[in-house]
Design a protein around this nucleic acid. Sequence first.
DNA 1: CTGTTAGCGCATTCAG
DNA 2: CTGAATGCGCTAACAG
Lengths: 360, 360
Amino acid sequence: MSTDTPSRRSTGETAPSVNKRRAPVMADVARRAGVSLGTVSNVINNPGVVAERTLRKVQDAIDELGFVPNQVARSLAVGHANTIGFVIVDLANSYFVDIARGVEELADESGVRLLLANSDVDLAKQDSYLELFEESRVSGILLAPLDAPLTRAEQIRRRQMPVVHVNWPGVDGESCGVVVDEELGGYTATRHLIELGRQRLLFAGGPLSLSAVASRLTGARRAVEEEQGRVTLELLETDRLTVAAGLAVGRGIANRPPDERPDGLVSAADALASGAIQTMIYSGIEVPGDIAVIGYDNNHFAADHVIPISTIGQPGVDMGRAAAKLLFEEITRVPHVHRTITMNPELIVRESTTGRTWTD
Amino acid sequence: MSTDTPSRRSTGETAPSVNKRRAPVMADVARRAGVSLGTVSNVINNPGVVAERTLRKVQDAIDELGFVPNQVARSLAVGHANTIGFVIVDLANSYFVDIARGVEELADESGVRLLLANSDVDLAKQDSYLELFEESRVSGILLAPLDAPLTRAEQIRRRQMPVVHVNWPGVDGESCGVVVDEELGGYTATRHLIELGRQRLLFAGGPLSLSAVASRLTGARRAVEEEQGRVTLELLETDRLTVAAGLAVGRGIANRPPDERPDGLVSAADALASGAIQTMIYSGIEVPGDIAVIGYDNNHFAADHVIPISTIGQPGVDMGRAAAKLLFEEITRVPHVHRTITMNPELIVRESTTGRTWTD
DNA sequence: CTGTTAGCGCATTCAG
DNA sequence: CTGAATGCGCTAACAG
């Protein structure tokens, strides 16, 4: 056995082609270690079953050759990949990144690899990635879908590939999903302001065609109705849930006569709240003195705002874990009825409602 | 040929086991269409070569069976996957999401699929995903690495797997990389304030151990030195590049006597600038009247700020495209010397330096 | 404990 | 243009 570099064949090649070093395969390792192919397979997948001495011999051969097992071949042989795929509607939204983090935690614990794909709010791309994952024979697929018919996902599910939805309830009785109780979030936010004594509330957010916004509004209305007329709720629908839209909301409020302004603002998103707060402060309105403001989403910047923003936090990481758990159940065929797990949002109280600010 | 549901065998099975519907494979399609396996393969990969009539027959069989080609088997047979992998240091940073978008654009155009993995600023995870991609025999790997030795990446590269770095220069002469000229960005930002007539500048950012921050500072110093004493530059190192740190910066400025305040603030990040602007406004300092502020990164919220923030934009999408292009060159063995592509940042002028605000 | 062998599902010759 | 045969690299029996 030659001890020189294994990367170069000693058969004087006459062909002008590049001496393209073929990646070493198991057979090469077996030959070099002087054992059979099956044994090499065992040291990789079943080390406990092979003799210490053999194991070391093979390990050395692997190291010397720089052998990297071919997952593709492995997957073909075992019939599935030890991998799950996650198609995400919008990677720019930290909420989904949190979910991905949760999924990954559980995947790690289960020794499963997680592959991500960003559909970027594009149905065609979403479908394309779903197909890629199906064709790649991943063990299962997680889908944080965009607001559109999920025919491709259903099709895939019908072909026996486990698909679990995140931030979407799933098809009743046919698939699993993990969602957060948006209505409860809207209720909780509004209730918080009411308990602080606010009585003239304004709900800002939109478009209402977004089911999340609509649910939050429903929750807000329920909280107000419970007060039997002691509290009013005004609705201001916005085009989007952005800081820019929030600036406009704040401007609108500032332009009213002081006694016609709300004393509490329920904002359907932190970005909106941020914009509103910024313009209101700029206009001399005290937050929360004159108007208490609560946001929604617990975006990263909410805590670091001039006036830290009270908000409703979504348990992204926990949702990801829950979704991954459901998926693993389906993958391992653990008997379970398809269900939708609804998680509770969390009230996070900061200065935009309670009044202590960094200036104190 | 029975026309009833293809999913159920008509051979009365006596086994109690679940009637586990095996996913249809090419052979099933071939049998159903009454052609051979090779022909089915052709209609999928080489439709032009097969007769119209045969093609339709096979297509129908595929549809009826719900056949989904097995990429794993395909990859094994052809020796590689039509896929590239992108290991991203931090998905929560929109800069990298932009890069990913650029990569995907080019991948789409090339008919290559893109798989993402989030290393989440964790070296172990970064290595783990690099291994996954190598074992999965992707065509090539893109790596936006964290600030640590890239031994695993080099190892992989040495095994003939193309690896291109993004936001990292690459190993000189051995690998390719795409970076942005941070020093030029710092220079451009500072030059902008100087051209607006500002003379007492403050550079805020840190920690300086971050090479990006250090380079931006170097650029800022160069711009000031060119003025030969007409302009001064003060340095305020921060712990982090967050809104919270920016609030502190603003507070520090506000607490000074007015005549000791800078008249221009070069902030190493938009988040920092945002915090500073918010506290300064809150304290009655005019922006940009008293102090012009420029940020860095062109984060999404910079444009939607109370006072829209002038900033230095990094061409994330273009960087992604450039990196993908380099990778494809390596994959297709287009002869090319390994090189580092340095892209130029872009000055984006908004109200925090020029003075028009939404209140006008 | 180790060696042998038969597929996994598909692409790709090469004949017909 | 179509069909039969061979192999991609590995796992999983099974036999030794």
